[in-house]
Amino acid sequence: MSDSGNNKKRVLIVDDDPAYARMVRAFIKDIYRADIAISGEQAITFLHKVPADEGVDLILLDCEMPVADGPAVFKMLREDPLTKRIPVVFLTGNATPALIGRIMELEPEGYITKTATREELLGYIAERLL
């Protein structure tokens, strides 16, 4: 119970690669309460399970996932009244201008490349969660 039940902000990491998700969690767990979902479906199930008063403050959403990719999951999140207000930051391994353009058209909170270091990631999240 080390990182629950206090007033840490809550971040949900959605990435189909458990190793990467774990790494991100390890990066941020000292400062944020971080949960992991390895698919869009799991993420939405999770978001419905979380009690309203402990709601997720930010979602880090991987762009490249099988079945439903990041943009698809994003659309699902936006259509669901329960999740539509949660800010989403995309994680992308391949930040080509075309992909970034496609992502940014969805008007997410932002995007961050998977090459980001721990400090960059924390700084970025901290900025979004002010």
């Binding site: 190793a19 790494m23 390890a26 391949n94 930040a95 490349t113 998977k114 090459t115 721990r118």
Partner: peptide, 16 residues
């Protein structure tokens, strides 16, 4: 870029 991503993951995990 594709190579950098996993290297970064390797370095990140290694940092842990």
């Amino acid at each position: 870029h594709e190579i950098r991503t996993p290297i970064n993951a390797v370095l990140g995990m290694n940092e842990m």
